[in-house]
Computed example of a mutant assay.
Amino acid sequence: MTEQPPPVQEEDVIEAVAVYAAGALPWRLRSGELEVLLIHRPRYDDWSWPKGKLDPGETMPECAAREVWEEIGLDGRLGIPLPTTQYPVAAGLKSVHYWALKVGQSDVVSPDGTEVDSTHWCGVDEAATLLTNENDVVPLRWLSEAHRRGELDTRPIILLRHAKAKPRGSWNKAEGDRTLAASGVRQAAAVGRLLQVWNPERVVTSPWRRCVDTVRPYIAAANGKVKVKLDEKLTEASYRRKPDRAAAAVDRLFDKSKGAVLCTHRPVLPTLLRAFAHRCVPGIASELPTEDPYLTPGELIVFHVALTGTPRVVATEQVKPFED
């Protein structure tokens, strides 16, 4: 049975976290064998994973993607979440969140020369012996097991609730034209930055304005590189008439081979979540939200779908955009 990365238990934390950081385990297949990329940091003279401290105004996934880019020049899509590690440093307890990151054949690794002076591709067993911090072996073993199960190579399908809209009671025009609140506009900008971590190639959204305006910043940042579809079945009005039709939007995304984001309204979420749950491998569906409001405005769930075999959700993560 597939499992999610184990959460940090309260009894395991003996002090408050002083330092938050995030990073990724770059991986590739070479002659059918799994290889991972270690980095050497001259400041510490150690072998580790690309990672770094959380900047103000960042979510953990954004931090991981930024650190990989800054340290080794890879602008990749984050894959499945891996276990978080915790260990003591001079400032106190440090918590590091990790993701898998697939490196394509044409991708070029470019150490920045300051934080990282060299890199080394190697197999899992060699990596386990070279890693200086034994805590770094934990996400490595998880990544290796995911590969063994055929659940490492994935694409994202993202379920997004639109950002905060102006109050329904104060709106006297057509419901489909109701706009985002000022805080919702800021949320939409944050959503646009967050979605770039997974870089979905397709955007499917309710045509009502508050949904379209939520995905607009991401579409603009993609600069014409994403396909956009307005799906009337995702509106609240259509859902009230024929609720089962909304689930078809999920089914169509599983029939494609690209990453996607699906933006809709709170009342539609339970039906869409049930549709996703049917596509989950055992043990994953139980992690999905089951109570109203399911997602807060601007919040999203990433469903990581295996690229080999029957399309199935092998991991999920629920993320809120950073709000100023």
Rank of each mutant, 00 (worst) to 15 (best):
K320E: 10
Q187D: 05
V103E: 09
A247W: 13
L180V: 02
F276M: 10
K164V: 14
V17N: 07
R279W: 04
K227F: 14
G150L: 01
A249C: 10
N133W: 11
G92N: 03
V268Y: 00
P270T: 01
L295P: 02
R77G: 03
L295F: 06
D255L: 13
P7S: 03
I14E: 15
V226H: 06
S257Q: 13
V13P: 06
V314G: 10
W47A: 07
S183I: 13
R210A: 03
V250M: 02
R245T: 15
R312E: 12
Y44E: 11
L262P: 00
L152S: 00
N223E: 14
G23F: 11
C280H: 08
S257W: 13
P270K: 03
S31N: 15
R274I: 07
R266F: 09
R252P: 11
L143V: 05
Q9R: 15
L180A: 03
I301Y: 01
P26M: 10
R241M: 06
R43Q: 11
E175N: 04
P81M: 02
A285M: 09
A221H: 07
P7E: 04
V137G: 00
R245N: 14
K258G: 10
P26I: 12
K225G: 11
A127H: 06
V89P: 05
P311D: 00
K256N: 14
D231E: 13
A221P: 08
I39C: 10
A222G: 02
S110H: 09
R30I: 09
G184Y: 10
P42S: 05
M60L: 15
G184D: 06
D244A: 14
P282H: 08
G169M: 13
L54W: 06
Q318H: 15
E3P: 05
V17T: 11
P156I: 01
Y44A: 10
